[in-house]
Design a protein around this nucleic acid. Structure first.
Lengths: 286, 286
DNA sequence: CGTAGCCTTGACCGCCCTCAAATTATGTGG
DNA sequence: CCACATAATTTGAGGGCGGTCAAGGCTACG
């Protein structure tokens, strides 16, 4: 498992032999076991370390006063959490395990050491975090604009693609250590309605989810129902890095053909010139 | 307006006289006018500059095949957009004006120059961007777990706080250059239902929204209905900076009392020791 | 074999969507 | 200033999706 996880991380930023070795050692040494439904981070907490998930599922979530537990992100093997907090920012949400899981503890000291000696390693870790933000943006769109069937279908598509990246699924299915209540909280539905919707998905001959096993009978149909476009999951080469990297690191700001000097640049009012089609002011829905 | 916007930006990262001057000059020189409902950025596009909004509203949004136009973020005076794209990443959504607006064009060359000479300035700009991500996370929770009344109330609360930061509103109201259709797309509702819900908000004696004017009769009640907690809008001093800044910039990773050396750190399995209360496995819903 | 957790099923209902039409701003040219 | 067109909002009727409450079945595990 460790090796697949590392391979996946390398897809974000290539690692030389030494930094790969460093990561492997950390994985073997800092490994920890968590039981299901344990709270790993609380809101307001200042993390002293971040974690790299090796196996099992976790989630970012809130606990509201009305008892709801909205899940804002699912964490899968290969994902990292506690990164921002380990740097400086206190948590504004909670992280909890959904299944039993193994995670590697990366202390702030370790991160600090790595960032001096193997920046590519840190870049890769930040990139996986950036991907999580991208997923969150997609969730906002999905939850705000689609039906229960579409939401679950989309969630399944996403999870399968993410799990395939670490060899834990095919497009025909995989193991999802989630309850229907977890799916409900992630999709903004109730468990009861998740149950009914899963029954419908199954009845349509598209996919079944039982005993933590997702089996997709008709992958193409599943993607069509979900309106799934995997684009947001593809880490655009090194681009994901720059998304997070601070612009004051000039090595990432290509100096461009030299500014025309002076205060204000000769910046063409592109949008005004380009006279583009306006937004359809009130498009018909569905 | 320019001065209030700059003052607000300074709250994220203090500027010395020179960089403030630089920003002022840019604002005066690179200023551009956009008409309402113009597309400023398209998905897939590679921006050549980013923009600082001086007055008027804009939004980040998508246009789906079914005709829906989910709004994933509202851009207010003092907000910045095109920042990531100007650095490297192509856009994955669109940015459009909602009202007539003025924005300052900051070319990549300008950003590059600033990041060399006045990193604090760039930090401040990135911080405002980080705040937008934080808002997006909150929207995901709101859209996924609350009613139309709560969503609109929450949106109003948020907009008022954000506008107060640039002196464009009080807690009793302000001007929102938005249509009900815009509110609908931002809240994941239909315009028809927004109309009804606004009528209800007004009927309850809480707030009225007419002719682009939001008037809050009972601010306390509005916040209560919304379940509004402004915490996510407070830029935690300099913390927002680090949220984006790459950890490989070691000046932001406090070196800590020195690692115990060696590969794996003596990292206590905190969560296992701390035997915390598990997540309420299936809490009653409101 | 009993208990607890998870899932299913049914009945009921309310929120919100859809379609459609009327009404009220807003803007433009005469 | 009025006539007209367009956009925005309101209102009504009807219906479906998804929530709520509650009971019963299934699985796992001690």
């Amino acid at each position: 498992m460790i090796d697949t996880v590392i391979e996946r991380i390398e897809e974000f930023s290539p690692l030389d032999a030494l930094s790969r070795k460093e990561l492997q050692v950390a994985c073997l040494g800092g490994r920890q076991l968590f039981r299901p439904r344990q709270v790993l981070f609380r809101p307001g907490e200042q993390a002293t370390a971040s974690y790299l998930l090796l196996d099992g599922f976790a989630c970012r979530h809130l606990v509201l006063k009305n008892g709801k537990r909205p899940i804002t992100g699912l964490l899968l093997p290969g994902d990292i959490f506690g990164m921002r907090s380990a740097v400086s920012q206190p948590y504004d949400h909670a992280v909890s395990s959904l299944s039993q899981l193994h995670a590697v503890c990366l202390s702030r000291a370790t991160l600090s050491r790595w960032s001096e000696r193997w920046p590519a390693l840190i870049d890769a870790l930040w990139s996986t975090r950036a991907l999580q933000s991208s997923i969150q943006a997609k969730w906002l769109v999905i939850v705000g604009s689609s039906s229960a069937l579409e939401r679950l279908a989309h969630l399944f598509c996403e999870l399968l693609v993410r799990l395939q990246a670490v060899g834990l699924a095919t497009e025909d299915g995989g193991t999802l250590p989630l309850t229907q209540a977890d799916l409900a909280d992630a999709a903004g539905l109730t468990p009861v309605h998740v149950s009914r919707t899963l029954a419908r998905l199954s009845g349509l001959g598209i996919a079944t989810f039982r005993y933590n096993q997702l089996s997709v009978q008709d992958p193409e149909q599943l993607r069509r129902v979900a309106g799934f476009d995997p684009g947001y999951l593809l880490q655009p080469a090194n681009a994901a890095v720059s998304q997070i990297r601070c612009a004051s690191d000039t090595s990432y700001v290509t100096p461009a053909p030299e500014p025309p000097a002076g205060g204000a640049d000769a910046c063409a009012p592109r949008a005004l010139l380009a006279k583009r089609t306006p937004i359809p002011s009130r498009p018909k829905r569905s």
